[in-house]
Design a protein around this nucleic acid. Structure first.
Lengths: 241, 241, 241, 241
DNA sequence: AATGAATGAGCATTCATTCAT
DNA sequence: AATGAATGAATGCTCATTCAT
């Protein structure tokens, strides 16, 4: 069967798929021992939360690397250092695991969006700061992969697309629109129609995220520099920085 | 190519996988009968080409609707009106089917990009015409789904990402850069740095494609109108059309 | 013993297994709380005996409703209001739980059989009284289900079939045979060969038990009336009651 | 049809369950080779029917030996000499396999019941002939096990209990009642109330079936002799045969 | 070439049993 | 003693791939 190509970025492959059964880390004990060693003590609830966190992290890695359908819960369990059955103590099934995972992972994005942008100086500065944050913390981290994951699986998981639209996209659009209108009022932006398409502001960031996961090795992209040029288009020539 | 030509927009998903069994058209016979009826007679080679085209079209629909891993060749065969074994007369295995498919599907995109843009008037007009074409023929058709498919599966199919980068992206970028430089030379664009990031030109088109498949039902997007505002940012306020 | 004493008739099945997840009372805590509340205090041994009784009752319900293989110890524990591990403080494993259970449940049957039938008047009266008891206390109660359970699982649990044969069947047959012979001696029964097949006396009772659990809803059966007709066949026309 | 035709009595269990994994006859190939050898040639449809018959026979053996829940489809496949997937070409899932199996197996019983009893002489002779047939062909063969299987699984498969009641029990009862009434009319039976409980006629046969599968090794039962005594009770002392 | 029945490795999920707390 | 989280072998079912017809 499939060769199971290697993922270009993060996550080391959790096992060879078709031919060779992964050398089957028969060492959940070892793994949990390691966990135990790391931390001085932990009561029942803490340990459970820890395990859950390990599962979440492992599942995220696998789902990002392989997509929903191709991810094997066996691999998730191995990577998390737990037995297969343990997954089911925390999640009803693979599908809910995926959906809950995405929701959880999206929360930091929401927090970013929700942080009321501090408009102390020009709007452009606020947008630029926002973009810096986004690019550093999302486009260049695993969170960017989550966005790609949503793009990839969204059509098969309408609940996820809905959730993402509601919690992130529509809120982000509203915030962008407010910023744009403020900038128009202040005369920083002359293009009044821009308020109708706040997507235009973030489009380069989205493209950067996609570019990083698909083409980074062919042609690295300086996302931040690109975004600054983009801002120049919107706000007019860059001030002599 | 022909046969099930255009199916101009998204295929309705044939069923959620995990829970509901797809309503699996139980009529391969019927389908192939229809095929046979369409054309009076056909020699061996023609029939084979026809079958292959049917398979390609069917596979495209299924891969778009479900992604690589979740697509069942059974469904592809059913939809194409052929037996399962027949698929293997045309493709080595599921993986090569997928890869060849993408390559095939990407050719029209290449052709679009390769068509030397007619610069008879302002560069902006050329770009606008290009965008109109792109949006009509890609963002609003099934071809847009192919782009999403590449985004979704690219990391698992580096060969495809490579191919796509080489054949479409890098060529498109080069063409864009040339246009930008021409426009800068002519004074249509003042932002000189834009030439370094031709991605900025197409970013809204990419975002439109993604938006359509994820959020169209929440908030339809007038991709063309958006793109025109985008062009105003780049080329300056729209001429009084 | 007590506690959930009565449950006089069939337990409603907790859910079809393959398709629907049982509505799994999520309240072991609540249940055991109730237990604790019922009785002011209890020393260690008493509490243990109580728990064991609760487990036995719960297990009986589940085994009757689902059979051995399909019964989940999780459900038994939940129904008994104890933790899963507690089951193993009382029983070695599922199999011994089942076997001990049956043995326990069969004891009342034995007691019934062993009670020396009071022959104060005609043998027929004794047999009729016996049948009344059997039908009221067995065929029409959960104990009848135990007989069906033995029929169902006997071939897979030879130890149980052996035990049941030894403790109930052979003793019952002997008692029946004695009664028959007494009746023959007294001239109440003319059919001498009946003594060779004491099964014939109880056959209608067995059939009644099976009928109740399989066909009661299609066609209710008046077991006692049937048995009286049966006695008429054996002892001759019923006296003008 | 044939092959493992008659297997007149109980099947030896196909493997120890809990402790030892069955020595796993890894020889489906061998088995099907044997099949092929037995028969000169066979077209597609014939082979399919043959396979299905093999599956049906194997499944029957396993279900009888272990009950529904404890039967492993792996074992069924092994015994039938086919691959696991093949089972699913013939049956939707384990549950429908079981239900269809029972239905199929019950047909011969129906045929027996439906055969209009030839009343050429005394009714008693007709009943006696019926009983002989029943005991030879059912109580003493694997068909008896099917009755036990229905008793065992009926409560978990209401559809089966319904079917069995409708197709066998109610029809059999009606036939019995007609015979009884004829006998009453002719003066062969004096007990008029017997017509209300035709179950009484067959009760010893049912008991014999159960006895055979549970207690045969403890105390063999001459079912036919027992039934003759039973008939004497109903029709009066046996004629000097 | 075309078919589709057959295969069997693969995988999600369940559940008896154990054991640290 | 009691708990219930954790385990992992077991099992129903799927589906890419093969191959006899």
């Amino acid at each position: 069967m499939a060769k199971r190509t290697d993922m270009p970025t993060r996550t080391p492959p959790a096992g060879r798929r078709t031919t060779i059964r992964a050398a089957a880390a028969k060492t959940p004990k070892a793994a949990s021992a390691k966990l135990a060693a790391e931390r001085p003590a932990a009561n029942r609830a803490e340990k459970s939360a820890e395990r859950r966190a390990a599962i979440v992290a492992a599942a995220m890695d696998e789902f990002i690397a392989r997509g929903f359908a191709a991810t094997r819960l066996d691999d998730v369990a191995k990577r998390a250092g737990v037995a297969k059955g343990t997954l089911y103590l925390h999640f009803k099934d693979k599908e809910s695991m995926f959906e809950e995972l995405i929701r959880t992972a999206v929360v930091p994005l929401i927090d970013r969006m929700a942080a009321p942008p501090q408009i102390t100086g020009p709007v452009r500065d606020a947008v630029e700061r926002f973009a810096e944050t986004f690019i550093h913390e999302i486009a260049e981290t695993r969170r960017g992969d989550i966005i790609r994951l949503i793009v990839a699986e969204g059509p098969r998981f309408p609940a996820i697309a809905d959730f993402y639209f509601r919690e992130v996209v529509s809120r982000g659009m509203a915030a962008m629109r407010a910023l744009i209108q403020l900038a128009i009022t202040r005369g920083e932006i002359r293009q009044r129609e821009l308020a109708q398409f706040p997507q235009l502001i973030v489009a380069p960031a989205i493209v950067a995220v996609i570019w990083q996961s698909l083409f980074a090795r062919h042609a690295p992209l300086d996302a931040l520099a690109m975004f600054r040029v983009h801002l120049d288009l919107i706000f007019g020539e860059r001030r002599t920085a």
